[in-house]
Amino acid sequence: MDGPEHVFDDRTPGVGEHEPTATYLSYTVGLGLAILATIASFVVSQTDWLWSPGIPVGLIVLAFAQIGVHLVFFLHLGSGPDSTNNVLALAFGVLIVFLVITGSVWIIANLNSNMMPMSP
């Protein structure tokens, strides 16, 4: 084999010993992006810069963006072959979380709209 003798272990989420991506700089970049997303979501919720029916959508988008920043810069989940297992486990977790939240909200909203009207 001519290529470099580099063994691709599974990567752990979090910091890894031989990890080129985990440096003080990458954490600082992640912190900067996360602070930007946080300030943006507080500004969006407290001002009317965004069309008001669009504010919830804006908040959800910013929350997902910040979660993405945390996963990449703080937990070092990547697209490389060494973090396949971690990303697959995360994908399964996200599926369950999605099912629990949307399923509950959907079912209860449905039950609620089928309730007998209660006289006050």
Partner: peptide, 16 residues
């Protein structure tokens, strides 16, 4: 991840 699933149930309860 299983802890996240537990939190998702609490988030769902809050939303409801």
């Amino acid at each position: 991840l299983s802890d996240m699933v537990m939190f998702s149930a609490l988030f769902a309860a809050y939303a409801v």
